[in-house]
Nucleic acid binder design. Structure first.
Lengths: 139, 139
DNA sequence: ATGTACCGTTGTAGTAGTGCAACTAATGAA
DNA sequence: TTCATTAGTTGCACTACTACAACGGTACAT
C-alpha cells in the first residue's frame, strides 16, 4: 500500500528533523535569544516586512510581535521605520548586525546531519529531486 | 558540490516538517493538553519507563516530569507504580485510555502531507529507501 | 465630515516550561 | 554502621509565550 509507504516516509522525516537533529536550543544559546526572535530574524533576512505581516509569518499576534521586534531593535538587529505609503504601518527591516546573526542561525539550523553528508551521491540526488517536487507541490 | 545538495535537501526537509506541516497545535487541541504531555504519552506508548528515564527522553528535569506525569495520571492516561527492584524508583506506564489518546496523537502527527500522498510511486519508493538509510545511520 | 476599519502599541492575566534548592526514602559501597 | 549517591517529590523564582481588551493614529469609502 503506497499510503503506508507515505506514512513511513513522513514518520521518518519527522524523526530526522524533530528528534535526531533538533537545533532549537543550540541556536538560541548561540544567539542569546528565544527561538521566536531567531525566527523573526530569519524571516526578515530576505527583506523588510510590516509588523503585521511579520506577526502572521510568526503565527502570533501583533501585540507579542511588538515585544519581539522592540527587543530585537534594542539589540540593534532590526529597525522600525514608518511605512512610506501607509502611515499606520511600520516596516521592520534587518540591520547588518542582524544579518550577521541571521547567517549564524542559518549556519546552525541549515547544517545537514552527518548521515546526509555521508549519503551515496546517487541517493542524495534522488532525495534532492523528490524533495524539490514536494516543495513545489502547494502542500 | 554535494555538500550544497545536502544542505538544500536538509533545508527542504526542515521546511516540510517544521513550516508546512507543523501539527503541534492541532494535536494539542485534539487531546486538550500541552505538547510535552503528548510527547510523554507517545514515549510511554511502546512500554513503561521510570520517571527519570522519561525525563531524559523529554529532555527536561525530574521535577517538571513529576508535574507532567501527575497531570497525566489525574486524567487517567498513565499510572505510577513502585519499581519492583528499586523501591526508590517508580515506573510510569500507559493505561488503555492513554493508549487511545496516544493513537489519536499518532494519527494526527503521522498523517502524511497530501503532496507526499500524491507523489509518483517511484519517487515515493526512492524516498522511502533513502530515508530508511538515513535512519539506519546513527546520526 | 463622518463612520468604519486597520496598524501598531500598551497593559493585563494566565499558561507552559526552565532551573535550582531542599527534602524523604532507598540503594550500595566501605 | 556510616556515608555518598540516587529517585522522586515539593516548592520557588523566572522566562517565554498566548490571548484579549483598549487606545491613538491613520486610511478610506460614503
Amino acid at each position: 500500500m503506497s499510503e503506508d509507504v507515505a506514512a513511513r516516509v513522513w514518520r521518518g522525516m519527522r524523526g530526522l528533523v524533530l528528534e535526531r537533529h533538533e537545533r532549537r536550543k543550540e541556536v538560541c544559546d548561540a544567539l542569546g535569544m528565544s527561538f521566536i526572535r531567531v525566527k523573526a530574524l530569519r524571516l526578515l533576512a530576505p527583506g523588510p516586512l510590516t509588523l503585521r505581516r511579520l506577526a502572521e509569518r510568526l503565527a502570533t499576534d501583533a501585540p507579542y510581535t511588538t515585544i519581539v521586534v522592540a527587543d530585537l531593535e534594542r539589540r540593534g538587529l532590526v529597525e522600525r521605520a514608518p511605512h512610506p505609503e501607509d502611515r499606520r504601518a511600520k516596516i521592520v527591516s534587518i540591520t547588518p548586525e542582524g544579518v550577521t546573526a541571521a547567517e549564524l542561525a542559518e549556519r546552525i539550523l541549515g547544517e545537514p546531519p552527518s548521515a546526509l553528508l555521508a549519503l551515496d551521491p546517487a541517493d542524495l540526488d534522488a532525495l534532492d529531486r523528490v524533495i524539490a517536487r514536494l516543495l513545489a507541490a502547494g502542500s
